[in-house]
């Protein structure tokens, strides 16, 4: 009964006290700005992502209501005269996206390692073989990152994925120490076939979109990236670190919470069932 009265008081009182003044803030006759606008009080400095409209700015086009324009925007880009013509190629530059033959061959070699390793993972019956395929795949991915000028990420990929996560997998495989009975789900059902076809169609569409991706800056995008504004090499540890401890600081710190949850949670679940815990009662399996 006491709990009920307390609840009654809280239910009635709290929201009224908490929000009464706050809700009165929008004055009548002064409609709030439309959502999406940023309000800056006079005298306050501008937030970092906002700048005042300059005379030379292009106003954003607002399409006519009704979506009359929408369908035509969805048309795929018109096929050009020769295939891949929409991809800008810089024949002179061999330092950017690999335009030279040896680099191209290296790309294919690492792509083959990536795909081959991945196929190994999903087809092997033996779990250790699957893990090894995964490591091979990560090796290829790491080299591909290097080609994308992501040097730091390339090293992290090897250290964290191949070095740490895969070792964890090997440990668990060893603990379980059990071969698989039935590696692949029984197929042949109509649903599986239809689902497979639908996925194949969607992936085909996705690949068509991806092949046609146009770099935003045209020719310049294919050149080797220049140094960052602080003079560090693009993608190097210094450059990524500067970003990580600048705008990326909040997520970088917040990820420690996530890792703590992972570690604490894994310990809570996987530690052995202690003697001091109560034995299983009839009800334990009930829900």
């Amino acid at each position: 009964m006491k709990a009920f009265i307390l609840a009654l008081l809280v239910a009635v009182g709290l929201p009224a006290i908490a929000f009464a003044q706050g809700s009165a803030a929008p004055q009548p006759g002064q409609p709030g700005p439309r959502p999406g606008t940023i309000v800056v009080q006079p005298g306050q400095p501008l937030p970092p992502n906002v700048r005042r409209l300059q005379p030379g700015d292009t106003p954003l086009a607002v399409p006519a209501k009704g979506g009359a324009q929408a369908p035509e925007l969805l048309q795929p880009a018109k096929p050009e005269k020769f295939p891949h013509g929409d991809r800008v190629e810089s024949k002179l530059d061999s330092k950017g996206i690999p335009a030279s033959k040896p680099l191209a061959l290296l790309f294919w070699a690492f792509a083959a390692a990536t795909i081959g390793g991945a196929l190994f993972v999903v087809t092997r019956r033996n779990l250790i073989a699957a893990v090894m395929g995964m490591v091979g795949s990560f090796l290829g991915i790491s080299a591909i990152y290097m080609m994308l000028y992501a040097h730091f990420l390339s090293v992290v990929q090897m250290l964290v994925y191949a070095g740490a996560i895969m070792v964890l997998f090997v440990f668990v495989v060893m603990i379980l120490n059990r071969p698989e009975d039935e590696p692949v789900a029984p197929t042949g059902r109509i649903g599986g076939v239809i689902g497979g076809l639908a996925i194949a169609y969607l992936v085909g569409r996705l690949v068509m979109i991806l092949i046609k991706v146009r770099p935003p800056t045209g020719e310049a995008a294919n050149l080797a990236p220049g140094p960052t504004s602080l003079g560090h090499d693009w993608g190097s540890v210094k450059a990524v670190g500067t970003d990580l401890f600048g705008p990326g600081l909040f997520p970088f710190e917040a990820i420690s919470i996530l890792l703590l949850v992972g570690v604490g949670g894994a310990i809570a679940i996987a530690r052995p069932l202690h003697e001091d815990e109560p034995a299983s009662t009839s009800g334990a399996d009930n829900v």
């Binding site: 000028y149 990524v240 970088f252």
Partner: peptide, 30 residues
């Protein structure tokens, strides 16, 4: 990131790797 010349995606990728590690730890525990 390479296409846009924008390094902030590298931070994003790093965070994805960390999340994958945490997820793998919890998944293996389960």
């Amino acid at each position: 990131a390479r296409m846009w010349g924008d390094l902030s995606a590298h931070t994003f990728a790093l965070i994805v790797i960390a999340v994958a590690a945490a997820e793998a730890a919890v998944g293996l525990a389960i």
